[in-house]
Design a protein around this nucleic acid. Structure first.
Length: 271
DNA sequence: AATGGGACCTGCGCGC
DNA sequence: TGCGCGCAGGTCCCAT
């Protein structure tokens, strides 16, 4: 125990798809701010003023971030970080911020640890966070991904989690994709064979796709828009399975700390 | 370029 | 049983 999963690409994509079905075209009538710490820009008062009366036109996901395209050329950028949740319809009770919509219901932003970020901007593309963001695995071919790995001497697992390298993969899916590709998390990227690089490209894509299909993984705080848990944790092969038998070879799953993060792998299957 | 550590946060597990 | 400490991690920032 002691593991936590933040929302990664599959979880944020799940929320995005559910939001699209229920809030497009609706108006933000009012904004209740219960904890201003999550509002990074502009100030709390301006934040409310900017949002009241706008219509939600579109929702975009970039890596692990969500961008609400609003009327009036404005954008609401949301990063859930560790424990952020978007819930609709919400009760507003435990929320840090609650958006009251024109349908009389509210969209709640919950965040137990208050590490997430909300901001209203006019040009999200020029934000440093997005300018530095690397491509998603979906934007790449196997050949392009392989080429990117050739130039890197870093350990493969922290590299997969580096959002400026590729975006969307975090601690959980890095572990699962490496297990499926039978690659040890401590290997340097440059040491991978062509065959291993291609396998990794495929397992990242496959793992993310399967997780989206099951509406993400709920190990700790993540919930879907309707407040339900995702089901993909039932399919994890190594993440949070320390000491349990490997699904392939039955030797116990190991856990080490790598770059300050819990790293799960099978010492026998992953070379 | 790569790596390491601290800060941001809070709730939980652990030890005594 | 109860209390207090340390850990968990995505991202940013700074130092080496």
């Amino acid at each position: 125990m002691g593991s936590f999963n933040m929302p990664e690409l599959p979880e944020v994509e799940t929320i995005k798809r559910q939001l699209e079905k229920v809030i497009l075209g609706k108006k933000i009538v009012s904004v209740l701010v219960n904890n201003p710490k999550v509002i990074k820009e502009p100030s709390k008062e301006k934040f409310k003023k900017e949002l009241e009366g706008v219509t939600i036109k579109n929702i975009i996901r970039k890596g692990k971030a969500l961008i609400f395209e609003l009327s009036g050329g404005k954008f609401l950028v949301v990063h859930l970080r560790m424990t952020g949740q978007l819930v609709y319809p919400g009760s507003a009770k435990q929320s840090k911020v609650s958006f009251k919509l024109s349908d009389g219901k509210s969209l709640d932003y919950n965040d137990r640890r208050i590490l997430g970020e909300l901001r209203v901007v006019r040009d999200w593309q020029s934000m440093k966070f997005f300018k530095q963001m690397g491509p998603e695995i979906y934007d790449l071919s196997a050949a392009e991904f392989s080429k990117m790995l050739c130039q890197k001497k870093t350990k493969i697992k922290p590299l997969l989690m580096d959002q400026t390298f590729i975006s969307g993969v975090g601690n959980l899916y890095a572990a699962e994709a490496l297990f499926r590709a039978k690659i040890h998390p401590l290997r340097s990227a440059i040491s991978l064979s062509q065959k291993e690089k291609k396998a990794l490209f495929l397992t990242i894509t496959e793992t993310l796709n399967e997780a989206i299909k099951h509406r993400g993984s709920s190990v700790d705080q993540y919930v879907t828009l309707s407040g339900k848990k995702g089901n993909y944790a039932d399919y994890h092969r190594v993440y949070d399975r320390q000491g349990e038998p490997c699904v392939i070879c039955k030797s116990p799953v190991k856990r080490i700390s790598l770059g300050g993060r819990g790293t799960y792998f099978c010492g026998r299957c992953q070379k």
